[in-house]
């Protein structure tokens, strides 16, 4: 039996009410939306806020709208199931719908939210454990301890970003709106991250993610998400990759992006992908060999560590396999890619 530690629950009904509560309680407060990440972590003794501000009753933060210019506005407490099944998301950002459809299992997608997946705590097999387990090991860098069990002698936490939708939003050039008592600020999702597993976001814990804005994609936009996992449900990614591939009028690649997750503390954009793929037409040998080059590039740049479950060498060998399959799926307008 795992019990939650004691806290006081606040249930504001407006964003202003929520930001006022966060300002009032400072570091004693945390926000919760779906609770599928925070509650297990609190049951493991990883967080002990005195006040928890629930966003569930803030109606204004829920729902998906399409702007006149074709961009999407996704309220942060929209559930992952709603996002995965949303016709506008499937049509204009297929990789995002695919990634949302692969997060955890059905019940968790009904509860977990779009914003919560972006703000997900980093994960590590030495961290996401009960207090008894962690205490027996002498704790770790991320919580209560001074040593890292992943990197011997490591001084920096390398817990892994494990959010399926974050790399997808990066590949789509999405923007996040954060609300605080000081007002609203917008952050491009690619600029949110820092390489620190303890807290991998350049946002204060008191700031509330209220909305995700996905700009209108190019006319020939294609996208796909690939997820390596142990089981066909419930699991966090052992490796994830999001692909954006924009095809020009001539059918050749005009723009591309590849962002991977479940490696280090921040989602990792693979460099030089676009220059390798641009000008190649899917279905041709030139395209296939460019895809293989990108897969080799990912193999060189993405180095899985022993931070999350799953043998690191196995995960590393499957990086180029998943990158190749996801790129080909995006080119065909298919996806998601997963072997279980």
């Amino acid at each position: 039996m795992l019990r939650l530690p004691k806290f006081r629950l606040e249930e504001p009904t407006t964003v202003e009410g929520a930001t006022a509560l966060m300002a009032e309680h400072g570091e004693d407060a945390m926000v919760v939306a779906g609770g599928t990440d925070l509650w297990p972590n609190m049951k493991h003794g990883l967080f002990e806020p005195k006040v928890v501000v629930s966003l569930k009753r803030v109606e204004a933060m829920r729902g998906i709208t399409v702007d006149e210019d074709g961009s999407l506005r996704i309220g942060a407490t929209t559930t992952l199931a709603e996002m995965a099944q949303s016709a506008p998301v499937q049509a204009s950002a297929p990789a995002l719908a695919q990634a949302a459809s692969l997060v955890a299992g059905p019940q968790l997608r009904t509860m977990g939210t779009a914003g919560g997946n972006v703000m997900l705590d980093t994960r590590c097999q030495w961290y996401n454990q009960t207090h008894f387990w962690r205490k027996s090991l002498g704790y770790c860098l991320k919580k209560d301890g001074t040593v890292c069990h992943v990197v011997a002698g490591g001084r920096k936490c390398v817990a892994a970003a494990s959010n399926d939708t974050a790399p997808t939003l990066m590949s789509l050039g999405a923007t996040l709106a954060f609300a605080s008592a000081d007002g609203i600020r917008e952050v491009p999702v690619g600029e949110l991250w820092k390489a620190d597993g303890i807290w991998n976001k350049k946002a204060e814990r008191s700031e509330i993610l209220t909305e995700i804005r996905v700009p209108k994609q190019a006319a020939g936009h294609r996208g796909a998400y690939g997820k390596l996992r142990d089981r066909g449900s419930i699991d966090y990614p052992l490796f994830g990759c999001a692909v954006r591939m924009d095809l020009g009028e001539d059918g050749a690649v005009a723009g591309a992006d590849l962002v991977c997750v479940a490696l280090v503390a921040r989602p990792l954009r693979i460099k030089r992908v676009e220059e390798l793929l641009v000008g190649k037409t899917p279905g041709t040998e030139a395209f296939d060999s460019a895809v293989q080059e990108v897969a080799d590039l990912a193999y060189a740049q993405a180095k899985p560590m022993d931070n999350i479950p799953g043998d690191a060498e196995y995960r590393r060998e499957l990086v180029p396999v998943y990158v190749r399959r996801t790129l080909q799926a995006a080119a065909r307008g298919e996806g998601p890619v997963h072997h279980v």
């Binding site: 629950l9 609770g35 509650w39 629930s54």
Partner: peptide, 13 residues
Amino acid sequence: GKPVLACLTLAAE
């Protein structure tokens, strides 16, 4: 009407 996990839902919610 939707299946959710009662262990990760607060009673108050």
